[in-house]
Design a protein around this nucleic acid. Structure first.
Lengths: 327, 327
DNA sequence: CTATGTAGGCCAGTTTTCGTCCTATATGGA
DNA sequence: TCCATATAGGACGAAAACTGGCCTACATAG
């Protein structure tokens, strides 16, 4: 709990502290709130009213064991976090940004940008240290994508700031770029930046994990007209040339229902074969990801497509068997 | 952006909206803020002053391209999230709670509890749907732990509320329990609840993933004296009888430096053998976790200890090889 | 039934807040 | 170099809000 109690007896400051206390999962008697905030109980009751008028439903239970606490309303109240909680959220969002969850990719980065913008520097160190240990976990041999860079890209896109960064192409040669970012989008577990390349004088799509050292120049540019009215159309039209996706077909030795439950509905289509097996059709963008999910099911399975996955599984199986070879 | 502009011309409400806008990663000219909030520019400047006095450093840049934005200060300002961002944070925290990051386990659950307490119900559905797809990913065959239950446990512990839940013992038989939770702690990727069992009249440690349907009774009980002055001591003394941990010894065909970088420093001790290989000693609590991390390295390796891991790798290797067998 | 908690009306005195002036200063671009 | 535009902030009067101290009503646990 914040212990910078006492003065700054501003009404607004008191309301914020009140919100902070009420977000704790416990009941606060009005008398205790009054004492801690240094005002009369009557004022506390008025403050509670104020919060309610602002749309934050403070739930008050009567009787000797009663008290106030903040309940769920129709709008999100401002979250008042202590240091540890802020770090925990930042770490969680960084991993979420590295392994985006379908449907909330952009929101994750927006939230991370919002948080990192105001995160005290002493906490930033902790986030970096903790994040480093977890980020490279599922990426396997993928080049690791720094969430911090993502935040810079998203910020520049939102702020219409010109951006300078170095980009290494598919063959590994790095180039220095100057561009006006338009949007940062996620497609199939990868991040792409749609931007107007000032050197090439044309629109380009950059893979975020090939961008390094992005720096916002601070120069704001007027919003440029995207190549097509709908940016999403342009992206999807060009994306498949950039994103190698694998179409999977496999037979699994597990009831269809269990597979759906374990893989989640987003995994693809699951057809029932018989009581003990099913067929899975889906798509993914990295072999490591695919192989990991299939093996984690713990059941027997046959992979029919794609051949790359078969090859990868053969190699992985060999490594595992050899690792278990000489005890 | 929130578009419930206009009235509710309360000073506090305006300050909150101002904070909300300033957290966006862009610059806001004072004139635009004044227009949106329906007050004069002078009032905006005064509000900015107020925020600064509250400890939130608003950074203002002069000149024709200037504007205000919230910078990182020494304390966390209240986070004002829109719906999508709140959902993204909740999803991130749920996965973080299921796979706790060392050092911030409790903070993750505290933050999640704080957020879920005030999360509007319409967003709660989305969180549930999105979370279900990701939670069961790394757990493998582990019984999945509902983050929602964790929140209830943490809340009850913080609020000193008596708790009713059903607990299934190691042999699978479920029992109904009534207990006074003391603390929720994480140890090695698992959650444990230290509580006073009212039926048994003694202190017990419950594994959180074996608890189902926890319900806070709403009855607050006076804080009970923990069995030893330091709860952590009691827990660690009893924990190892509950938590099966595996001590790993393996030889990896990868330079020690790369292993440290890829696995993170927390993975264990890495000894240099020669330029191309190293020896890893560490501990983990699930075989799936161990095997996955080792295989994701993509290098050849030999597992010396424990025998269970060898056996698991042999089985997994067999499955992978068979899956790749008939193309 | 009683103690304890929330809920809220009323009133007077005080404080804060707001808008409209004003000037000073820093910055980017023509 | 000069100008337009931005932040930064002082002074003042009118208006609005806030606060504390009363009061009563009502719900709940023991």
């Amino acid at each position: 709990m914040d212990v910078h109690d006492g003065f700054v007896s501003d009404t607004s400051a008191r309301l914020l502290q009140l919100l902070s206390m009420l977000q704790t999962p416990r009941d606060w008697p009005g008398s205790e709130l009054a004492e801690r905030l240094g005002v009369s109980p009557r004022t506390i009751r008025r403050d509670i009213d104020r919060l309610r008028e602002l749309g934050y439903p403070v739930q008050g239970t009567m009787g000797p064991v009663g008290g106030y606490r903040l309940a769920a309303g129709k709008a999100m109240p401002p979250l008042l976090l202590d240091d540890d909680e802020a770090v925990a959220i930042a770490v969680g969002l960084r991993t979420a940004a590295s392994h985006p969850v379908e449907g909330i990719e952009e929101a994750s980065v927006r939230a991370l940008a919002k948080l990192e913008q105001v995160l005290p520097s002493r906490l930033r160190h902790r986030v970096g240290a903790l994040g480093a240990a977890t980020v490279s976990m599922l990426t396997g041999s993928e080049p690791n994508l720094d969430p911090q860079d993502l935040v810079v890209l998203a910020g520049a896109a939102a702020n219409r700031e010109r951006l300078r960064f170095s980009y290494r192409a598919g063959d590994g040669t790095p180039t220095r770029r100057l561009a006006e970012p338009y949007r940062l989008v996620a497609a199939g577990r990868r991040w792409y930046l749609l931007a107007y390349d000032n050197d090439r004088d044309d629109w380009r799509i950059f893979r975020a994990d090939r961008i390094s050292e992005p720096r916002a120049t601070g120069v704001r540019v007027p919003p440029r007209v995207p190549p097509e009215q709908d940016a999403a159309a342009f992206i999807t039209s060009k994306l498949y040339s950039l994103a190698p996706t694998y179409e999977v077909v496999a037979t699994l030795g597990l009831p269809a229902e269990q597979v759906r439950q374990r893989l989640g509905a987003a995994a693809g289509e699951v057809e029932v074969i018989d009581q003990h097996s099913c067929r899975l059709r889906g798509s993914a963008d990295t072999l490591e990801w695919l192989a990991s999910r299939l093996l984690m099911l713990g059941c027997e399975f046959d992979v029919h497509e794609p051949p790359e996955l078969v090859e990868y599984l053969r190699a992985l199986g060999g490594r595992a068997t050899r690792a278990a070879g000489d005890v």
